Amino acid sequence: MRRTLRHGAIRLRRLLLWLWRQEGSHGQRARGLAAGVFCGCFPFFGLQTLLGIGLASLVRGNHLLAAAGTWISNPFTYVPLYWFNYQLGSWLLGPGQGWPSAQTLQQQGLWEMGWSFTSRILLGSTISGVVCAPVLGRAYWQWLEREQERLLASAR
């Protein structure tokens, strides 16, 4: 157990170093991550990375970090993220047909659920993306700034 935690900590540190060493200014890196997070909030399986990179190009953000930002939705977070997005959309548009059962999703898929379902999940995804993307992008930018200050201070 202890070895697994240590291995996980090492992998996390390598990931953070990889993120730190990406090309571009702090703003470009943060915009790329934010673009990816925004696109990752949508249930466009298989297209999120392409959409994130495309949006990063529009906002002059880092493409690799945009691709990484789409990982906000992954096999572990799909159901909670999209359930939340659907509930948010239902709260704004009024109750719909309800969240489908696992059996219904396996048989029909998300996009076969009709406009009532689709409109709610897309509205909720848009709002989640509009909130999460700038928050995480700003947090990453602040972290980059703090790390740069720390490195400059330690170099003196």
Rank of each mutant, 00 (worst) to 15 (best):
T4C: 06
L5D: 12
R6C: 02
R6N: 06
A9N: 03
A9W: 06
I10A: 14
I10G: 03
R11K: 14
R11M: 11
R11L: 14
L12S: 11
L15Q: 12
L17E: 15
L17C: 13
L17P: 01
L17V: 14
W20H: 15
W20F: 12
S25G: 14
R29Q: 13
R31G: 02
R31Y: 01
G32A: 09
A35H: 01
G36V: 09
G36A: 07
V37A: 03
C41D: 04
C41H: 02
F42R: 08
F42D: 11
L47I: 04
L47Y: 08
T49R: 03
A56V: 10
A56W: 02
L58W: 10
L58E: 04
V59Y: 01
R60W: 01
N62Y: 05
N62H: 08
N62K: 08
L64D: 06
L64K: 09
A67S: 12
A67H: 02
A67I: 08
G69H: 04
T70H: 03
T70S: 12
T70V: 14
T70Y: 03
T77E: 08
Y78C: 06
P80T: 10
Y82C: 12
Y82N: 13
W83A: 10
N85D: 14
Y86C: 10
Q87N: 11
Q87C: 10
Q87W: 10
G89K: 10
G89N: 09
G89M: 11
S90H: 02
S90Y: 00
W91S: 14
G94I: 06
P95Y: 01
P95R: 12
G96F: 02
G98I: 07
W99G: 09
W99Q: 06
P100K: 05
S101D: 11
Q103T: 13
Q103P: 00
Q106D: 13
Q107V: 14
W111E: 11
M113Q: 15
G114N: 09
S116F: 01
S116K: 04
S116R: 10
F117S: 06
T118K: 01
T118P: 00
S119W: 00
R120D: 05
R120M: 06
L122T: 12
L123A: 11
G124K: 09
T126A: 15
I127N: 04
I127E: 01
G129Y: 05
V131Q: 01
V131H: 00
V131R: 02
V131A: 06
A133D: 02
P134I: 08
P134C: 09
P134H: 04
V135G: 05
G137E: 07
R138I: 13
R138T: 15
A139H: 02
Y140A: 14
Q142M: 12
W143G: 06
L144C: 11
L144R: 05
